[in-house]
Design a binder for these strands. Structure first.
Length: 800
DNA sequence: AGGAGTGCGCTTTTT
DNA sequence: GCGCACTCCT
């Protein structure tokens, strides 16, 4: 038997084989771009099941995106189906017709992989909560039940705004709900409760955030709702406090795999640790018999720290489980063979990323030839940049080198950059698909329809209730709603019950009660269908009986037609959901809808150029890649130019961009650019251009025009910063390099050194990160607090 | 109660 | 330049 499964290792290199055959204990797989990490993951799961005889029921495989989860499941199905092919049909997989292949895959999926948990963090742990949330004992006595709604960013922001303005009576201009939301989310992602936030608060703002966090939590509980962050935080709190629940999941999941480990945040990390070890204090754990934790990631591709992802978790993996390891050296495997890009591209990427201080040393080894040089295109302004890209596209297409538009991707740092490029593509009639933008489930009509479903499932959900109470119009205005809300709060009766009580309603608000009566009647009628009808039927009924559809038909505009189409698509999605899930119900569909983006369902224009942000390009590959807007203040972003750790993240983003390309890289830069519709401003070429060896670059060279845009720290405004010397620099390869030689080149810094900064004034060095040329210094500036600076870039000079 | 008009503020966004 | 959120007007 075991012999017959060697096929799992046939197509793997040595390091991949080590990763795949790993069985007991922790293993970190450092997987460079294009090194076949999905292959390692899927083959390992197959190996666990086929050779180690692990029950799929005991395996937990976690990803960050639905797309990655789906891809993993599909590839796993195929691997296992291949193994079954000989037995079943007496012939190899590749010779089977598509129908037989699909049959076999369906069988694998239905039988073998039925109990395998593979999915995103959020979907898997919301599933866990559906089982166990009622066992959670909150310190403040708050509770949830398993019909909970999942609030998206908009829903929770609505709630927070209400808390800030109504409950706390604060000025939303001074305390911007979006920022408060961000701060709360950040705390939740660090696994911090509002109490901890309160204790650590240093100023008024901190205290207000902690207070808002507390009230927000109460409000969520009142609505029987959770936000995205709670789907991870609550399981952590629950697993910590409830030994029984913890040991149940610990005993179930004996083999845990995490993809894109560099993107985990503290809460996700805690979660993984709790389930892996089954202990609240992981240092006590040592029994790795028939148990493993297998994480795959690349610190150099960590680009989501602004969402609280912390790649130091990956770097620290080795130490996390150190005490428990028999053999420390076996806890890390590096996949460095790259099967994607030419060696010129990889050399450029390797050199660039060397400039980062915080990383795990690794290189990308090419398995291909040199290929072409990286092409640098320098343009007058953003319009000629777009034109230059378009003309390059046309040339390559006409030369018949790459006769397909789908082989091109145009990447940019900010969405705003796409418009000019689109205009140019339209002008030259080049088909393109723009990636990202408004999510399907973020559309107004979709959110409305979903809100109806949510209220039917969970009548406590006031955010949804208030969204639809007057949609379509029932003549229920702001004042009546305010009154009803007041009654609800005063008497501590859920809003739904207040409006569902006809008699007291007439007594309190009189005439407007007619519209509300209409609404509650509708909802009561619809709720009869909740148990016996699936979500598709229910949606159909909602849209018909509420008059929503009618209103759209009556208005008859293009926009309303589009909305109707979208609603039809929502019903189709519900139907599909029912078909794909045996025990499909409306609750499940709602969870699915909340946690699904439509990037996968989006209709792509066939054979078109792809436009997307650099962030969106992670995990993809293209034959030819354009990286645009390589200017200081744009890429790297103006928020990062004088912050070393943010700059390192921008550099990783550029690294991600470079490593998307198989054959060719085009980098473009404009000497002047119009930002936010203002004046055209001269620019400085991106520092990253100077970090790629000259001999790898072919191109018209960037001219520096001597200014870059950055945020003025005092005014909070964007200002143009002149660099006197840079005007004199002309067309020379050294131009870019010379620009960054900065005022403090060659200066040696030590802890305790005193210096003066152009903006922050006098300060003292309290810590030094990195060494040699690549240091950053932590400086304490009297009342301005501490900053981390790059001594090569910061406007500083030493004083003694 | 709801539509038109004005002013402000601006990165990236797996879920 | 553009979206949005809030205000004022009807």
């Amino acid at each position: 038997m075991s012999q017959s499964n060697n096929y799992l290792f046939e197509s793997l290199n040595k390091e991949q084989q080590i990763a795949v055959s790993h069985f007991n204990g922790p293993l970190l797989v450092v997987a460079g771009a294009g090194s076949g990490k999905t292959k390692a993951l899927t083959h390992r799961i197959a190996n666990l099941i086929e050779n180690n005889k692990v029950n799929p029921y005991n395996i937990l495989a976690v990803t960050f995106t639905n797309k990655a989860a789906r891809e993993m499941r599909e590839r796993l199905e195929i691997i296992l189906a291949k193994a079954l092919s000989d037995d079943r049909f007496g012939q190899p997989w590749s010779t089977l017709c598509e129908f037989d292949q699909n049959q076999l895959r369906a069988e694998i999926s239905r039988e073998k992989l039925k109990n395998l948990w593979i999915g995103t963090f959020h979907s898997l742990f919301s599933r866990l909560l559906r089982f166990d949330i009622e066992k959670y004992q909150d310190l403040e006595g708050l509770s949830w039940n398993n019909k909970f709604s999942i609030y998206d960013e908009t829903d929770s922001q609505t709630l927070i705004k209400e808390i800030i303005t109504q409950e706390m009576n604060l000025d939303p201009k001074q305390y911007v709900p979006k920022k408060i939301k961000w701060a709360i989310s950040n705390a939740k992602n660090q696994c911090l409760t509002f109490k901890q936030l309160e204790e650590n608060s240093e100023n008024n703002m901190d205290r207000i955030i902690a207070d808002a966090y507390k009230r927000y939590k109460t409000a969520l509980s009142k609505n029987n709702a959770l936000d995205f962050d709670d789907l991870l935080l609550l399981p952590v709190l629950l697993l910590k406090q409830n030994e029984e629940v913890r040991s149940y999941w610990h005993n179930r999941f004996k083999h845990i795999l995490v993809d894109e480990y560099q993107d985990t945040n503290r809460t996700q990390y805690e979660l993984i640790k709790l389930i892996t070890t089954g202990e609240t204090d992981s240092n006590e754990f040592s029994n790795w018999q028939n148990r493993s934790i297998f994480v795959v990631g690349d610190a150099d591709q960590s680009i989501y720290s602004f969402r609280a992802a912390d790649f130091r978790i990956l770097i620290g993996f080795k130490d996390d489980f150190k005490n428990n390891l028999k053999d420390n050296n076996n806890s890390i495997v590096k996949l460095e063979d790259n099967y994607r890009s030419t060696s010129n591209i990889l050399n450029a990427a390797n050199c660039l990323i060397q400039n980062n201080t915080e990383r795990i040393e690794k290189v990308l080894r090419s398995t291909k030839n040199n290929g072409e040089l990286l092409k640098l295109i320098s343009c007058d302004d953003e319009i000629s940049e777009a034109e230059a890209i378009t003309s390059k596209l046309k040339t390559l297409n006409n030369l018949n080198i790459d006769p397909k538009w789908k082989n091109f991707a145009i990447l940019y740092r900010t969405r705003a950059q796409s418009r000019v490029i689109e205009e140019s593509l339209v002008r030259w009639r080049i088909p393109y698909t723009i990636f990202g933008g408004l999510r399907f489930y973020d559309r107004r009509e979709i959110k409305d329809a979903i809100a109806y479903l949510r209220v039917l499932v969970n009548t406590a959900d006031n955010v949804s209730l208030l969204r639809i109470i007057n949609v379509p119009r029932r003549g229920i205005g702001k004042t009546s709603i305010q009154k009803l809300n007041e009654i609800s709060n005063r008497l501590n009766i859920p809003l739904w019950e207040v409006i569902n009580d006809k008699e007291s309603l007439v007594a309190t608000i009189g005439r407007t009660s007619k519209g509300i009566d209409q609404f509650t009647k509708l909802m009561n009628e619809l709720s009869c269908f909740l148990v016996n009808s699936g979500p598709a039927k229910l949606l159909q009924l909602i849209l018909e009986k509420s008059g929503y559809l009618n209103e759209l038909i009556m208005s008859g505009t293009d926009e309303s037609d589009e909305r109707r189409n979208n609603l039809q698509e929502l019903i189709n999605a519900a139907t599909q959901y029912e078909e794909e899930n045996e025990d499909a119900n409306t609750e499940g569909f709602l969870a699915n809808a909340a946690l699904t983006t439509d990037n996968d369902t989006k209709k792509n224009i066939p054979n078109s150029v792809t436009l997307m942000t650099l962030h969106n390009s992670k995990g993809l590959e293209f034959q030819n890649v354009f990286i645009t807007g390589l200017e200081q203040g744009l890429f790297p972003s103006y928020r990062s130019v004088d912050n070393p750790s943010l700059l390192e993240e921008e550099r990783r983003l550029f690294y991600v961009g470079l490593t998307r390309a198989k054959e060719r890289i085009f980098m473009s830069q404009a000497r002047e650019r119009r930002l936010w519709g203002g004046m055209r401003e001269p620019t400085i070429p991106s520092i990253f251009l100077s970090e790629i060896p000259e001999e790898l670059i072919d191109g018209e060279l960037p001219q520096s025009s001597g200014a870059y845009i950055r945020r003025d720290l005092h005014l909070g405004r964007l200002t143009r910063v002149d660099r006197g010397e840079s005007n004199t620099i002309n067309n020379s390869k050294n131009a870019v390099r010379r620009l960054y030689s900065g005022p403090s080149k060659g200066a040696k810094w030590a802890i305790g050194d005193k210096l003066i900064h152009a903006k922050f004034g006098k300060g003292e060095i309290i810590h030094i990160f990195g060494r040699d040329e690549k240091i950053s210094i932590a400086v304490k500036f009297g009342d301005k607090g501490s900053k981390i600076l790059d001594p090569r870039l910061a406007p500083i000079r030493s004083i003694n």
